[in-house]
């Protein structure tokens, strides 16, 4: 659930770190009934390369609780997951490309690829 200002930086970081296994996945905040009419047209227009999950749950809270039961609805919120799916870090508030880059490098160092 990034800030829209962060998306170009995150897409660039994904391209830069893809060889190391970094994948970016967004979660749309829109209501399920409005995905086709509002969310997808906006995403295709502005960020066509941004792979985004669209929720089907009644509330956003139910979906996010699968990763973070203590989510407090602050936006933007980003989660850095390890290769095994474990939550490594919760990031709230807008971050720069450099800040995200540092956090991802730390995560890569703590979650090395298996050989």
């Amino acid at each position: 659930m990034p800030c829209l200002r962060e998306v170009p930086d995150l897409l660039a970081l994904q391209a830069e770190l893809a060889a190391k296994g970094v994948t970016l996945l967004g979660v749309g905040m829109g209501e399920p009934a409005q995905l086709a009419s509002l969310v997808e047209p906006f995403r295709y227009k502005h960020f066509p390369a941004f792979r985004t999950l669209l929720r089907a749950t009644e509330t956003m809270h139910e979906l996010v609780s699968a990763i973070d039961p203590a989510w407090n609805e602050i936006l933007p919120t980003a989660y850095i997951l390890g290769r095994d799916g474990r939550l490594l870090q919760k990031v709230q508030g807008r971050k720069t490309r450099e800040q995200f880059g540092q956090l991802l490098e730390q995560a890569l160092a703590s979650s090395p690829a298996s050989r």
Binding site: E31, A33, L38
Partner: peptide, 21 residues
């Protein structure tokens, strides 16, 4: 929620926080 949300034509002008309810 608006059960007819998919029928609204916002074209490509919609802002980033559109919601129809």
């Amino acid at each position: 929620e608006d059960p007819n949300a998919g029928q609204h034509d916002t074209g490509d002008q919609g802002h980033s926080h559109m919601a129809t309810t």
